[in-house]
């Protein structure tokens, strides 16, 4: 009798088996089957062919650019997204709602529209581009342009993951720190920031993942110069345009595996940093 009670936890809502079954089925259908197709398609190549495609100088340059720019953009967003979230949560001012809604724009805007707009703005005769070119900075058709586009699309991920955590922070914890003699700087770095770290890491992971797969907003501003401003997704599209599907999937596999490992690392980091964050 007792063992029955412990082995099967009865809850108010039934349907564990049903929902788990559905979850697995759905994940297979939507995620696993398409992904495994990439691997099967790639396996039509011999190891030598795969090696050649995956490690060609053009491909290697594109990996460096894609991962570097994505990570850089995520880090920049981590800093400025945190500030934006801070301002939106901590202060009340005229137009706050509008600013809050503005943050979601990169989510909602079709990426191609964002790409064309950014390309126009940063072109040498564009609003921002001509100011920058006077200072000798070129954005359009450079790696800088890719970085700008990836920063643009990544911002909401950071802001929206930090915002709720910041809102839930207990004001008493800050007051306790103040009454113990901590100044504002110490309160932020020693008390608030550590409590935000898990959310910040989640935000970075999401912005980073989003940037890795970004295509639409980058192609217009990047100029797509081989070895210089070609990101891996563009390279994949190029192979697809030439109907070399196996080569395209080979590149995709590399992108996929590296992304997966990096995201796993970030998730572990996030788990580690939040291990004591049970709600008190």
């Amino acid at each position: 009798m007792n063992s029955m009670l412990f082995s099967r936890q009865r809850t108010v809502l039934p349907g564990f088996k049903l929902t788990l079954g559905f979850t697995i089925f759905y994940l297979c259908l939507i995620v696993l089957i398409p992904l495994s197709a990439i691997f099967t398609k790639t396996s039509t190549l011999t190891w030598a062919q795969f090696h050649e495609v995956a490690t060609s100088p053009v491909a290697m340059a594109s990996y460096r650019l894609t991962f570097g720019a994505s990570f850089g953009a995520a880090l920049v967003n981590a800093v400025f997204g945190l500030i934006v979230a801070w301002v939106l949560v901590r202060y009340n001012f005229f137009g706050k709602r509008l600013l809050d809604a503005l943050v979601d724009l990169p989510f909602a805007l079709p990426t191609a529209v964002a790409g064309i707009t950014l390309a126009r703005l940063y072109a040498e005769n564009g609003w921002i581009g001509h100011l920058l070119s006077r200072a000798g900075i070129k954005v359009a058709n450079t790696q800088m342009g890719i970085f700008v586009a990836l920063t643009f699309i990544g911002l909401p991920f950071i802001v929206r993951t930090i915002q709720p955590v910041l809102e839930d922070l207990d004001a008493e914890v800050e007051e306790a720190a103040a009454s113990l003699g901590a100044n504002r700087w110490q309160i932020f770095w020693r008390v608030i920031f550590p409590m935000l770290t898990p959310a910040l890491l989640t935000g970075i992971a999401m912005a980073f993942a989003r940037a890795l797969g970004e295509y639409g907003s980058v192609i217009f501003i990047a100029g797509n110069i081989p070895l210089k401003t070609v990101i891996t997704p563009v390279l994949i599209m190029g192979e697809l345009d030439m109907f070399s599907y196996a080569k395209a999937t080979a590149l995709a596999v590399v992108l996929l595996v590296i992304s997966f490992v990096l995201l796993l690392v970030i998730n572990l980091l996030q788990w580690w940093s939040s291990r004591h964050h049970e709600h008190l």
């Binding site: 008493e172 914890v173 007051e175 306790a176 004591h276 964050h277």
Partner: peptide, 10 residues
């Protein structure tokens, strides 16, 4: 000291 302790949980 606060009612809900306000300890630094990290």
């Amino acid at each position: 000291a606060f009612q809900h302790y306000a300890l630094f949980r990290h």
